[in-house]
Amino acid sequence: MSRESRPEGGLLDAGLEGLSHNFLTGTLEELVKWARSHSVMPATFGLACCAIEMMAAGGPHYDLSRYGMETFRASPRQADLMIVAGRVSQKMAPVLRQIYDQMMEPKWVISMGVCASSGGMFNNYAIVQGVDQIVPVDVYAPGCPPSPETLMHAILTLHQQIRDGELTRRPGHGAGIVIEQVGAPGSTPVALGRN
């Protein structure tokens, strides 16, 4: 669709004839997914040690901007990817969910590091054992902390998922774990913790 190839008079006069070369066709769906996968804007959601590595990935050495990912948005309203970088505490969980809810669809979540993915080495009263209990996760990045390379791999995996997935329905629901509501039928009664 380059400008030079356009004959005098432009598209309106010449119609499709004018576009003798340099254009591509595709289903609308493919194009939208292609565009989406190249314009992901992550929200800054640094929690703990992993956040330092996430910032390092944005730094000059690893240069996240070559994937078009460097625009970390401060406001969740402008972001469509949440990189949960670090351990999620019981106190943080409601905040995290609220921020997730504030993000616009379509939205994706990368769970960065073992703490966010499964609680990691902190299997205790304070840490949520896997952020997938609160929000649906698309890609898990393993490691403690995952090196910036691992994060990049997770991001590229996510790009691939966006391109291959469905347009309107998001692929899968994270780990398939449903949010357990307090007092929901079948949930274990809790002796300790928040009530």
Partner: peptide, 25 residues
């Protein structure tokens, strides 16, 4: 959190995993 029952570093407080709860937002 403000509404947390118990004091976690007491020895009779169970340090282990508790099911995650989430105030249904």
């Amino acid at each position: 959190p403000e509404d947390w029952p118990g004091h976690p570093l007491r020895k009779d407080y169970d340090p282990g995993r508790i099911p995650v709860q989430f105030k249904g937002a």
